[in-house]
Amino acid sequence: MIYLDANATTPVLPEVVEAMMPWLTERFANPNASYRAAKEARKAIETAREQVAALISAKLAEIVFTSGGTESTNAALKWLARLVGRKTGTVVTTAIEHSAVLRVIENFAQVGYATEMCGVDAGGRLEMGGFETACTKAKEGGGFSSVMWVNNETGVIQPLAEACEVAKSQGLAFHTDAIQAAGKVKIDVREVAVDFLSLSAHKFHGPKGVGALFVREGCRFEPLLRGGGQEKERRSGTENVAGIVAMGKAAELAKAWVDEGRDLRALRDDFEAKVVEGCEGVTVNGDLIHRVSNTSHLSFDRCEAAGLLILLDEMGVACSAGSACMTGKQQPSHVQKAMGFSDAKARSSLRFGFSRLNTREEAAEAAACVVRAVAKLRRVQGGGGTGPVVVYSP
């Protein structure tokens, strides 16, 4: 299999597996006990905390380990909602957020919170004018904002620093979903003054089921989960020692990758060039300047993404549809609709996500498979040439 769905999850790096295995086998002690083996487990957790903190330039005390990105996001948003109160509180977010943000905010709206859903331009970047207006409006009764750092479907990098500055200038607390950004772009919470930030290990070559929430020093915070008082009373539940150790090692490797200036741009661009050259009617979606180097989001005229996925899977290429399948019907994703896609274009979109383990040879073979799959599907559907290539240019 040529795996090109790294935005969904990444393969766990061998070094990460090696780091976590002892804590799944002989080093199984509960880190909250008092004997030597437990103290070793506690020390391993604190080492991982240092590694995760270093990834985003945070302080050790600002890192709270969780079960993943969804929990981290829910913990931050639900606390902020309690803090501002439903009678006057306003939540400012964007139309392209992950469901871990949008579903929570939909629930807030159902129980009385005002919500401001800000739009994006054709390239998928936040429209700052509308965001500034929304934040100014939210200031009147108090509120908070949540803006993702990198979009999970398109890979488009949002103007996060500007958005955070605008929100904070209006007195709004600020959360960011940085799950797709970690290990791909530099994250420095000393430079970008977010109050809360969500991370998930399996997006940067760690295991599933472990994540972290950054809580800026000095910010009020009460836990989503209560119980034994682990994580300094901020997240109860016996710690997933093996997962946390693995996340720490993955964070250390991700930081080195970013610090060295390494990325997947050449790999991704070579793949796109071969697909565009081999197929008519291909659209490269999203802002071509402000996007992470691993993501390629493409639309194919007169092709259904569902059909392409089946053909590519048969050829040994794993990728994702650019639209979600809900209740048995192919529905355009909310991200693509926010960008102004027609239903037909949205249903023809695929997302290719490269990881650090992919090779040039795999990218070239995958591109050849895409070209063959598109040609085959068009023949089956009775289509032919579909006109010139269209590429979005910001």
Rank of each mutant, 00 (worst) to 15 (best):
G119R: 15
A201N: 02
V185N: 04
E252Q: 14
M148S: 01
Y113I: 11
S333D: 07
Q336L: 14
G143M: 15
T115H: 02
K249D: 08
E217L: 06
I96E: 01
V120N: 06
P388S: 06
G218H: 12
K186Q: 11
I63Y: 13
V12M: 13
F341R: 09
E46I: 01
E97L: 04
K139V: 00
T386P: 01
R379K: 11
R226E: 11
I157P: 01
R220V: 02
A81L: 07
L311G: 02
F352P: 06
R82V: 03
S348A: 14
E116M: 15
T66K: 05
C219A: 05
R103G: 03
A324Y: 07
F131D: 04
R226A: 08
V241E: 01
P207G: 10
A8F: 11
S349G: 11
E140N: 01
A368V: 03
D313N: 05
S57N: 11
G353K: 12
N285H: 10
L197D: 05
G353I: 12
G261A: 05
V335C: 10
E314V: 04
S145L: 05
K184D: 06
V12G: 10
M1W: 08
G209F: 03
E233F: 08
V64D: 00
D5R: 12
Y3A: 10
M117V: 15
Q331I: 13
V185G: 06
S67F: 00
G237Y: 07
G119A: 15
L357M: 11
A344Q: 08
S236G: 15
A38R: 02
E362C: 13
G69R: 07
D195F: 03
R103I: 04
G328D: 14
G243Q: 11
M339E: 09
F214T: 01
K184A: 14
